[in-house]
Design a protein around this nucleic acid. Sequence first.
RNA 1: GCACCCGUAGCUCAAUUGGAUAGAGCGUUGCCCUCCGGAGGCAAAGGUUACAGGUUCAACUCCUGUCGGGUGUACCA
Length: 614
Amino acid sequence: MNLLSEVRELFEPALTALAPDAATLAKCLGTIGPTKNPTHGDYEAKFAPQLAAALKKPNSEALPLAKQVLEMLGDDPMVESFGTAGLGFINIKLKDSWIAEQVRLIAADERLGVANAATPKTFVIDYSGPNVAKPLHVGHLRSTIIGDALVRILRFLGHTVIGDNHLGDWGTQFGILIHGYKNFLDAEAFEKDPVRELARLYIHIKNLAKAGDDDVDAAAGDIMDACRAETAKLHAGDPENVALWQQFMPHCLDMLRPIYDRLDVKIDHALGESFYNPMLPSVVESLIAKGIAVESNGALVVPNAKGIVPKPDEMDKEEPPALVRKRDGAFTYTTTDLATIQYRLETWQPDVILYVVDARQALHFKTLYANAKRWLGLTTEMQHLSFGSVLDKDGKPFAARKGGAPELTTLLDEAAAEGLKKYEESLAKQKADGHDVPDLTDARKTEIAEAVGFGAVKYADLSGNRTSDYKFDLDKMLATTGNTATYMQYAYARCRSIFRKGNADETAFRTDPPAATITFPAERTLALQLLKFGDVLAEVQAKYEPHHIAAYLFDLAQAFSAFYEAGSKDNSRKVVNDTNPPEVQASRLLLTDLTARMIRTALDLLGIRTVERM
RNA sequence: GCACCCGUAGCUCAAUUGGAUAGAGCGUUGCCCUCCGGAGGCAAAGGUUACAGGUUCAACUCCUGUCGGGUGUACCA
């Protein structure tokens, strides 16, 4: 079920006959879409002015052209009526009976009418990628959440998706840990809880270094040099430091695991920088052999896009080259990323590689792609899906200066606490209003609290398409009214409750659904909205923009609310009402159950949980 | 200096990628539970889409310039 495609197919024969070339045809079909303004009907086609222009006809010919197209179409079981307006815009109203029948069809489908991709592809999605030696903070959230949603969505659409967590497990942060371990270790604490002690050491060193920055203690300023020296020794294969790295790594991964678990994020692979370390010398050799990398200033570089290596004093006019080996012989992240691309191509043969990484690395990915292309001659689509960096409530960057970004663990704790608070408030209110509400077990309450709290945090990331910076505002993030995950979760629980009240056989409704009928406007709006899920997923896939799902869900939940509210003013419009004809009640229960399934499926694609009661 | 991203209601964000009257949520104001779940619904107020030009039947969207914010600018990743 792809509603938009079906509408476009209606017009395709006529437009093919009239359009002078394929480009015009595609452009004309592209103007067909859902209406913004409901008075214009359900769908609209705005190709007439463009088609007239392509045919070198004056604008006054657009409206007659639109009418000519409509005459070529004839009748269709889908369409109630066509209309034309203004310059030649065509308005399309779908037939109620057709909508109702489509609803019944998608209800019988496990996939809710969403077709598998016509040409399944293999995707590698590179996301999350934290530096493992330090506690995660909110800045790591976006990549993890957006990447996870894309994995879920593309997989649902029938693609092969490989998620890869490109851990930062080989950098300076380990020098910090090693230096800390050698100089500031609390052996007893390390024995008891290595994860906590490593985190403490990291923060301790950073604080010392920070003090040095402010010239409070000049000697402390040298501490980062000491850490860098430890990093260099590690990379040079110093046995003691390598042994420490091997000792630390499992603990570092232990720090990450609970966070991913709480977020319901499972990443297929975690091939970090260290994994590629052994391959780097051969990458560089190959770059030299193919004449791609050249020596400059003692370092080994790949020339910039213009094919030149600017001299140091020209660097402010020309783009810099990409450094693949430093003067001291160490490799860079460009080298690692090239090795990573090569490994991914050989191992998975992907059609597409997506990087979910913040916008500051835009230039790096641009040159990386160009260089990988020259080096490997790859045709694989590579795309950097960028997003802005984290700002504080006042819009200032979370600089390393003061405070810094809150830790993720703390954020998740607060989110769950807030979820619990909201639940208990709601519970108290319902009791005060004389409702008979069952006391749930603590386990159930925790389930609700986490669904609500974590859902709120995720939704904050997934409901917007901002490529600009991300303003971190805990209160807004955890809001549970309005356009939030909670609103959708609540709508779900309410659908489930109403369906239970209808006392109908759920399984039958999902395998051999009753006929749907449309009896009032809000019911029609809901039914039509249910048919649009496939269109939305197609759009999400085309642009890798999950936020359209959030917009869809909000529209759906609102459509359901309006459908439901209609019953509070008019008993004949209630979903469950024994005085209504049985087939009317069955149809409304079908819409209710289908709404619930749709919300649950769509939230699941965003990685957000639902609960049966809340 | 150069390059990239961004600027939409008081705040946070949408806008079918050039289409009809720029839409939501929060906040503000006023309504709606004799209840099929009020974590809800209805309504009002709030806009020269940063500014100035240009392109065309049509511009938040494309082009040029200005202002403001962010980021990047080879030996950190």
